[in-house]
């Protein structure tokens, strides 16, 4: 089935089988392997991307359902010159990652969180990030990173 999908601002035409999930289309058809596949049944959060601005499990959405939609993935976070997104910087500084399997999903979830709540407390961060599983960090570094990115953004906007 032919679909058109915009990923990180770039329009793509794809011909996909109906059963192809959005995450497989991103990775295998578009070569955007930044979005990771974990459990493939909606539990781990590794494949989280934004579809029309809202976080979505890309393993639970069919690519054909994204026809006409705008998708944001981790590849779109850093600048064209390689400058890291403030959340990516914060994850690096706060040891918010180790093996990196969960990181793309964590980042996209955090991007949406800070878009909707620029100044979340640690409890809110923990609750909102709880749908993304990490087996390395123990989460503290991740919560630190999101909190620090929020703090820096609020500070830079008010200074």
């Amino acid at each position: 089935m032919k679909i058109t999908v915009t990923v990180n601002g770039e329009r793509h035409r794809l011909d996909v089988e109906p059963r192809r999930t959005l995450v497989d289309a991103l990775r295998d058809d578009l070569g955007l392997t930044g979005t990771h596949v974990g459990c493939e049944h909606g539990v781990c959060g590794a494949c989280t991307v934004l579809v029309d601005g809202e976080p979505v499990r890309a393993c639970l959405m069919l690519a054909v359902q994204a026809d006409g939609a705008s998708v944001a993935t981790v590849e779109g976070l850093a600048g064209d010159d390689g400058t890291l997104h403030p959340l990516q910087e914060a994850f690096s500084r706060c040891h918010g990652l180790q093996c990196g399997a969960c990181t793309p999903g964590m980042l996209m979830t955090a991007v949406h969180l800070l878009d909707t709540d620029p100044d979340p407390g640690r409890e809110t961060i923990r609750a909102e990030m709880s749908g993304n599983i990490c087996r390395c960090t123990g989460y503290t570094g991740i919560v630190d990173a999101v909190a620090e990115a929020a703090r820096r953004r609020v500070t830079s906007e008010t200074s």
Binding site: P18, H41, R57, C59, L62, V64, Q65
Partner: peptide, 26 residues
């Protein structure tokens, strides 16, 4: 029927069901 897919797609991925047609109502 395929609506949000948050229960149906895991069922399909785990191959607990094999419907011939998905009718997307979204």
């Amino acid at each position: 029927i395929l609506a949000g897919g948050q229960s149906l797609v895991p069922v399909l991925a785990l191959r607990l069901a094999r419907p011939a047609v998905l009718v997307d109502v979204n």
